[in-house]
Design a protein around this nucleic acid. Structure first.
Lengths: 240, 240
DNA sequence: ACCTGAACACCGTTCAAGT
DNA sequence: ACCTGAACACCGTTCAAGT
């Protein structure tokens, strides 16, 4: 593949402690920083080169082009999804909630990258173990065997989706198109307050959205309610 | 704003039934088609012009540039979110499920547009009425007043998020990077089947993912379980 | 009023050249 | 081995020009 190698074998392996020149790791870190501040579509080989103080073409020797840079960034962050913090709950449902919260935290740390991260399939080697782990948790939580297949998919998609939706709106507002989220919600609240009816509940709903930690509470409560609900059969359609 | 007008007043208003030249509506329709086939990042003024059989610069007379084209497409689709089909359930929870299904259907009709559509705030004039409607449904469903603020946010984010996550993976696989979704799942299933343990449940979970309508069932059951779960207080943390 | 086409500053990538 | 810089085919947009 061309003069350089760009994928495989050892990078530089500089012997001395001096300034080590460009490295793959430095490129990935810089790329993530650019994505954080300019979005994925703002990641540009020229901009990346500039932020590294290097000719943009220098990157091509270490990584096979822009797509490979993005892949490397995604791979680095995907690895963090598996790094769960230490004190984990023993109750299976609470453990699933904790795992969901961890996924959400990782996704929201870099909202501009979240859509790509959430849409990539799991790395193949980890997939079977993860499916087995999920099934064992559902079983331990008391799910009946026939509910488990549907529940695995529902829980995974709702959990990732919640974080994704949050990241998308955060990214949208970070771009500062139109009024801020706060201004919007305040405006809606003002419109409601001007009505003749009693709108205290509506206003409370909006106040909740604006409060700190509101999304955390919504995620935790919603996920837990879905888990318990599915477990005791509340997902089934009503028998009219 | 420049020679043309590009935003406001009447478009052409051709008097005769003949070929009417370029129109705003034709541009929006063509743009949506390009987005469907090439993704949002594949929407190009040159490509759009070509698909309309017109010089790319001709579009600038009707719309104020690429961002305005995208805005118009999003606005058109956002309007469809409010167009609910006729036979609606009377039970409040089932009505909320039906509304969620409708949102999901609209988002998935154009998966490449879904992230943008789901991240835009509601059009301001509709927002107060929608909040009021949501609160009234939750109340009718038997939610207690103090649960309603959290529930509105949780339901909206989980519902939109589920569809968004589906759209993101669909878009990812449509780009045909790496193996197909089916191939991946089959490979995981094969790895599980090769184990010594009993992995029938895991394999059933994977078979479920591959089955037709699996995502429909997951969305419907998961949303319903969350609604009923939140209603009866299953979202609250356990009192250890 | 509506459309065209040259021009400009960007973008990713190739490729020959430097050290 | 590692980096540079010119070059090419793209992109969005401006602007003068056509009809």
């Amino acid at each position: 593949v061309s003069p350089g190698r760009a994928s495989g074998s050892k990078p530089p392996a500089k012997g001395r402690g001096r300034a080590a020149g460009l490295t793959r790791a430095a490129i990935v870190d810089a790329a993530l920083a650019v994505i954080d501040s300019h979005g994925v579509e703002g990641l540009t080989m020229r901009r990346l080169g500039q932020s590294l103080g290097v000719d943009p073409m220098a990157i091509y020797w270490h990584l096979d082009g822009k797509a490979a840079v993005l892949d490397a960034v995604v791979e680095q962050q995907a690895a963090r999804l598996g790094e769960l913090g230490a004190p984990l709950p023993t109750d299976p449902v609470e453990l699933m909630v904790a795992i969901g919260q961890h996924f959400r935290r990782v996704l929201l740390e870099h909202p501009n990258l979240a859509p790509i991260l959430a849409s990539r399939p799991l790395p193949q080697p980890d997939a079977p173990a993860l499916v087995t782990f999920g099934v064992s948790l559902l079983r331990a939580a008391g799910f009946s065997d026939e509910d488990i297949p549907l529940a695995t998919g529902a829980i995974a998609t709702f959990g990732l989706g919640f974080a994704l939706q949050e990241a998308a709106t955060a990214a949208h507002h970070a771009r500062e198109l139109g009024p801020s989220f706060q201004e919007q919600q305040e405006s809606v609240r003002a419109q409601l307050a001007a009505s003749d009816r009693d709108t205290s509940l509506e206003e409370a709903a909006i106040a909740h959205r604006l409060s700190d930690g509101a999304r955390d509470a919504e995620f935790e409560s919603g996920l837990r309610a879905m888990l318990h609900g599915l477990r005791i059969g509340l997902g089934r359609p009503p028998t009219s």
